[in-house]
C-alpha cells in the first residue's frame, strides 16, 4: 500500500476521533467500526463502479479492484458509504446525527492528507497564499486545503448545533456536497468534475434537513425535539 495514502487515511481517522471527543454523548456503540466499515465499503464500491465504467471485467481482472489509485467513482463510493453507515441505524436516526460531524471531519482529514501526498494544488492563482510545484513558477490554489478547512469547519459547527432528529445528518450531507461544489472549479480535472453529483448531494441534504420535522414516528426517538 502506498505510504502517503496510508498517512492521509490516518489523518482522516484522527480528525474523526477528535470530533467524537468534542461530542462524546449519545453516540452509537463502536462508532469507529461503523465509520471505517462505511469507508471501506464506499471505496470498494466506488472502485468497482470505476472498473465497470472503464469496460474492465472485474471477474477476469480481480486485481483491478485493489487499485484504488486507478480511480474511484465518487458517486457510488459516497452512496455505498452512506448506506453502510445508515442501514444498521435506520430506526434511530439520532445515532446517525451523532456520527455525522465525525464523518465530515474524517472527509476533512482525508483532504488535509494532501500535505503527505503532495497533492494539495489546484488551478493557477496569484493570491498571496498560493504556492507552486517544485521547480515551477506557476503559483496555485491549495484547493485540497480549502476543502479540508471547509469540512472541518462544518464538522465543528455541527457539533455545536441542537437540531431536530435528522436535520444534523441532512445538514452534514448538504455541507459535504456544497464544500466540494465550491472547490471543484479550482480542482484540475479531465473532462470536468462530477459537478452535477455535488449539486444533487447539496439539494438532497437541504431537503432532508427541512423534512426532518416530518420524519415518520418509527424513525424518531421519543425525546426528539
Amino acid at each position: 500500500m502506498e505510504v502517503t495514502l496510508l498517512w492521509a487515511a490516518l489523518t482522516a481517522f484522527l480528525a474523526a476521533y477528535l470530533t467524537l471527543r468534542l461530542r462524546p454523548f449519545d453516540i452509537p456503540n463502536r462508532p469507529f467500526d461503523r465509520l471505517i466499515g462505511a469507508a471501506v465499503v464506499g471505496m470498494f464500491t466506488g472502485r468497482l463502479a470505476a472498473v465497470l465504467a472503464a469496460g474492465i471485467n472485474p471477474i477476469t481482472n480481480p486485481g483491478q479492484l485493489l487499485l484504488i489509485r486507478g480511480g474511484v467513482d465518487t458517486m457510488w463510493a459516497s452512496l455505498a458509504g452512506f448506506a453502510t453507515l445508515a442501514w444498521p441505524l435506520r430506526k434511530n436516526l439520532r445515532a446517525i446525527d451523532n456520527l455525522a460531524p465525525a464523518a465530515l471531519a474524517a472527509l476533512g482529514g482525508w483532504h488535509a492528507g494532501c500535505v503527505w501526498r503532495s497533492t494539495c494544488l489546484g488551478t493557477a492563482s496569484d493570491l498571496p497564499w498560493a504556492w507552486a510545484l517544485p521547480g515551477s513558477d506557476v503559483t496555485r490554489h491549495p484547493v485540497e486545503l480549502y476543502a479540508a478547512i471547509g469540512f472541518l469547519a462544518g464538522a465543528f459547527l455541527l457539533t455545536r448545533l441542537a437540531l431536530p432528529t435528522g436535520a444534523l445528518t441532512g445538514l452534514a450531507v448538504a455541507w459535504a456536497g456544497f464544500a466540494r461544489l465550491l472547490t471543484e472549479p479550482m480542482r484540475p480535472s479531465i473532462g470536468g468534475g462530477p459537478v452535477a453529483f455535488y449539486v444533487a448531494v447539496t439539494v438532497i441534504g437541504v431537503v432532508l434537513a427541512a423534512w426532518s420535522r416530518n420524519l415518520p414516528r418509527w424513525i424518531r426517538p421519543s425525546n426528539s425535539p
Binding site: E2, R69, G70, A124, V138, P188
Partner: peptide, 14 residues
Amino acid sequence: GVIDEQTLALQIDE
C-alpha cells in the same frame, strides 16, 4: 506508478 486524474490534469496544466 498509476497516475490519478488530479495529478495528470495538474501536470498537463503545468
